[in-house]
Each structure stands twice: as C-alpha cells, then as structure tokens.
C-alpha cells in the first residue's frame, strides 16, 4: 500500500494553515501583526517543585531550572519552560525537538513521580506583535497587560474572548504568543483579526 504512505513532516496540516494568507493580509507591522507559529514542540510536564529529584532530573534533561515563580518563563537556548501551575509546566522548543526531549525526560525521570506528555499537536501558537497588540488583547482579556503588571518573560493561563489560552509575552514591542487548542484556533484568529481591524483605519481624533 505504498500509495497511502504518509510523510510525517511534509503531510502535516497546522490548524491555521488555511488562514495563513488571510492573517497576513490582516496584519500591519506598524500597528499589529498576527501569524501562526505552527508545529512548535510542546511538552506538558507535571511534577513537584519540592521534589529535588524531579527538579534535578528536569535540569539534566532540558538544561534549565524549571520556573517556580508563578507566571514566569525560563529560557535555555531554544528551549523555554512556561509556568502553568504550581506543579505544571509547558516546555516549548522548535519543531522536531519533541522526540529527543521526551526521551531525555523519560530517561532522567525514571522512578520519579512525574509526567511528561507530548502535546505538540494539542495547541497551536499565534504570534501577536506590534504597538497595538496589547490593546487588541484588552478587548477580550480581563488581565492587566500594562508594563507595570506584565511583561516579557511572563506567562499566564486565561480566557481571551471566549477561548482558553496560554498567554506569553515574548518581547517589549510588545510581542505575545497565544497557545490555543487547535479547535479554537480558527475562532481565535478570526476574533483577533476583527479586533485588530480598526487599527488599519485612520484614528479617531
């Protein structure tokens, strides 16, 4: 049945691939730009920060100390660890990194009470960047994104419009990443484009 062999890389379809051109057309880097970052490696990690064996094993496998401060992000090279809860993290790395990271974690966590699960296909990532990005988010987010309250290196799980998201700020500009479940991605992208539309018009004076 050679005719039905699937290429595990080339045959992938990301949740927002069909909206790629639409998102580009709705983007204006001088105001706000929206694009999908498809296929990022994502690993859900559970364990106790009080368990030194766990923390050491993760350090060994990922080369980073997991963030224990609520809402913080730790980066090491191309790997980032997002605090999601007091015993829960999302490890994010470039496309293709999952198998190696998972086996490193599995080896290091042998005999340790922990859980590491590949969730790379569970959510996609939307990058939202530009001077108006925070204002776009403020239309659907009850959290305070003011630089005094939030900033680069911060992450939170919350609700944007009507979708649950993980919100990470990655840059001062500001730049954000929205991690959203696949099935909500089209809704959220449409909502973001709608919220951003007014910034392509002359402002009210």
């Amino acid at each position: 049945m050679a005719d039905v062999l699937i290429n595990p890389v080339a045959d992938r379809l990301s949740p927002l691939e069909l909206l790629r051109v639409t998102l580009a057309a709705a983007s204006d880097p001088s105001q706000v730009a929206i694009r999908e970052l498809p296929f990022l490696c994502q690993i859900a990690l559970r364990g106790s920060p009080g368990n030194t064996l766990f923390m050491a094993a993760v350090q060994k496998a990922l080369g980073l100390d997991l963030p224990v401060k609520a809402g913080s992000v730790v980066l090491a090279g191309s790997v980032r660890a997002l605090w999601l809860g007091p015993d829960e993290w999302l490890v994010v790395a470039p496309d293709g990194a999952a198998p190696a990271l998972l086996s490193a974690l599995a080896a290091a966590l042998e005999g340790v009470h922990a859980q590491a699960v590949d969730v790379s296909a569970n959510r996609t990532v939307i990058a939202l960047e530009g001077p108006r990005a925070a204002e776009v988010l403020a239309k659907g987010l009850t959290l305070d994104l003011h630089p005094r309250a939030f900033g680069p290196g911060r992450v939170t799980q919350t609700i944007l419009a009507r979708a649950a998201v993980i919100l990470e700020q990655t840059g001062e500009a500001p730049a954000y990443r929205l991690y959203v479940r696949n099935s909500f991605a089209t809704y959220l992208a449409s909502w973001l484009m709608d919220a951003a539309a007014e910034y392509r018009l002359p402002p009210l004076c």
Partner: peptide
C-alpha cells in the same frame, strides 16, 4: 501520586467499523 493531562486535541481519532475493518487495518499496517 497521580498526574492527569488532557490530550484531547493532541490526537485525531478515526474509527473504522464493520466486517471489513480488519482487512483495512491489515492493508494500512502491514
């Protein structure tokens, strides 16, 4: 000592059902 993690959308689930299902799986998964 138990951890739970949702993987609802990590996986697509395709259910094949019927008397010919085994034949199909044999073709697809030699």
């Amino acid at each position: 000592e138990v951890y739970c993690t949702s993987v609802t959308e990590q996986w697509s689930t395709i259910a094949v059902s019927g008397p010919r299902a085994r034949d199909l799986l044999a073709d697809l998964a030699p």
